[in-house]
Write a protein that binds this DNA or RNA. Structure first.
Lengths: 349, 349
DNA sequence: CTGTTAGCGCTTTCAC
DNA sequence: GTGAAAGCGCTAACAG
């Protein structure tokens, strides 16, 4: 069943070297030989042994994609996009997940298991420790980061600061004057993280407009639905006069909306909310958001990797533009003038 | 940097054969030799070349997991569970996705790309065509299906019929008498699919109770939120007297609840609804559901595969029990007697 | 218990 | 344009 290169060579009446060249489409093979080889291979159902090929060349044809967890919109779609692109380039995708436990730093990125097995790595939004960075670099293969820039590796990510500007600009244009920003955990607001960059974008616009942008209006919590929920409650306590919220992600926005509803506030009548991502978590809500396309980013990462492997050079940082997608969760503020004057209903619970 | 078995052998003052044995923990090696080898390997930072090992043994140490798409609760969690288990067994997980396009039959399962690369396959709920089944079987490695039983391969799946009984029994116990079943596409209701089995479970209980279980009470649509939405509208048109709905999946239940709310019906006051899965799509809803654990199923599939690879035998079909998780979406029917008499409010849109 | 040696299936000089 | 032959790094008899 499993025929070898020798079988093909014998059948085609040529040497194994010629079969090897012909099968890989190298030139320096006469059309006649090539045809004979291809014909013989077809008849025998011959497929090159990737294993033997790898041993001989040192290239495995395999790319590893590392994700924090598979069950998450961004990672899953980056993986999807990367895997498709890699597959059509004739490569297999191996996967590694770091931790199923959200928010816990005890990742278990088993980098060693990748040694000598792969030709490149795509790291999807997993913040690497210095130790891990060294380990990954020690694999001796090119690495591309997606989502989080993670030096010294090249990266593909959303133009986060710009996304923050787009979102905030949208709210300002609608007439909002007191605009809050809610985001993931405090740790995430370091300047080089997506959350931190989106914060910068928010600030950019508010500064430009001469609007308030103090720490009062920034709330950090966890990067999930529950986090958004809690963040917005904290926000309302601090600043009951807020009329619009920019959430660093759609999940956060979703949690925020739940909390607002519990609080007795309507969206967008009483308060506007905008997110980032465009995952269609709940298509019925029609959240206004800044859309990004992780599958496309995964495909781009794959391309970059293949390019490096092919000996090319690639930009250190590839930024992908987000796009405003207006939904039903943002509107003009109800009564800009009297906003502070009319007290809101107290929480129902 | 990349030292070979010969380097280690030289350093340890033994032959490569001894190094090979020692590294793999085979017995027939003196403690003294073993220690010397391990020591030398450590000093050199030596890692066995999986490629060379594969070429020599015929085993690649790699398992492929095939999913319809990565961005879906069940698949993602099976993958997560399987990958973890495989990793701790020292194996790498390769992935293949079939189609990003839901509901389209033009899968592109590139089975050929797996030839000679893997030791086994886990197929996650991807219905295989006969052709594909032949191709996969032609890989010459063991296969385990998860989610959908898919002969002739062994499978791990939810005890779907039982899950249907659990859900329906719960509704009956609450006092419901007119209980509908809504599910995925018509194609899915063939007896051997999850949807079909859950239908059987529904019927089992209703027959047992002498309650109505005709085709009027069964609505098929698509296996997603939109599908649940549309299905429930169709149902209410056909049977305005229904007081409880068993949805074949939580996503379907979610869509159904949206439709009910649009229709002006409250859950669970006016109508009860129960699903299957226990994905926490929206933790705020607290959907009553029959929970399954796909990560655990993925781990089980991995174990079975490893067992077969190790020369063992495994059961043709492994059924995992679902567990009722009461939430806030089921309750006693409001007024069992007068249900038919009091007409409901018409749709608001 | 340990070493020798012949592969595993392909690629790649180096000659012709 | 083609072939012979030497690896790639490891495992698995087979001797000893």
């Amino acid at each position: 069943m499993a025929s070898t290169i020798e079988d093909v060579a014998a059948r085609a009446g040529v040497s194994t070297a010629t079969v090897s060249r012909a099968m890989r489409g190298l030139d320096g093979v006469s059309k006649r030989s090539r045809d004979k080889v291809l014909e013989a291979a077809r008849e025998l159902g011959y497929v090159v042994s990737p294993t033997a090929q790898a041993l001989a060349t040192g290239h495995t044809g395999m790319i590893a994609v590392i994700v924090p967890t598979f069950n998450e919109w961004f990672s899953a779609n980056v993986l999807e996009g990367a895997q498709r692109r890699l597959q059509s380039a004739g490569r297999l995708t191996a996967v590694l997940s770091a931790s199923a436990v959200r928010g816990r730093p005890d990742y278990d990125v088993d980098v060693v298991s990748l040694r000598r097995r792969i030709d490149g790595v795509v790291n999807v939004s997993l913040p690497l420790t210095d130790e891990e960075t060294r380990e990954v670099a020690g694999l001796g293969v090119p690495v591309i980061a997606v989502g989080n820039p993670s030096p010294p590796f090249a990266s593909v990510s959303l133009a986060d600061r710009e996304a923050g500007r787009i979102a905030t600009r949208h709210l300002v244009n609608l007439g909002h004057r007191v605009i809050a920003y809610i985001s993931g955990s405090r740790d995430e607001l370091e300047p080089n993280t997506p959350g931190g960059q989106r914060l910068e974008g928010w600030r950019d616009v508010l500064v430009e407009e001469g609007l308030e942008h103090g720490p009062d209006l920034v709330v950090n919590s966890f990067f999930d639905v529950r986090g958004g929920h809690d963040a917005v409650l904290e926000l309302l306590e601090r600043r009951p006069d807020v009329t619009a919220v920019f959430a660093a992600a759609d999940m956060i926005a979703t949690g925020a909306m739940v909390a607002l509803s519990e609080y007795g506030l309507r969206v967008p009548e009483d308060i506007s909310i905008i997110g980032v991502d465009g995952d269609d978590t709940d298509p019925w809500v029609q959240l206004t958001t800044v859309v990004q396309d992780p599958a496309e980013m995964g495909a781009m990462a794959a391309d970059l990797l293949l390019q490096i492997i092919g000996g090319g050079a690639v930009p250190e940082m590839t930024l992908v533009h987000g796009r405003l997608r207006p939904g039903r969760t943002t509107a003009r503020p109800r009564d800009p003038e009297a906003a502070d004057a009319s007290p809101r209903r107290p929480p129902r619970r």
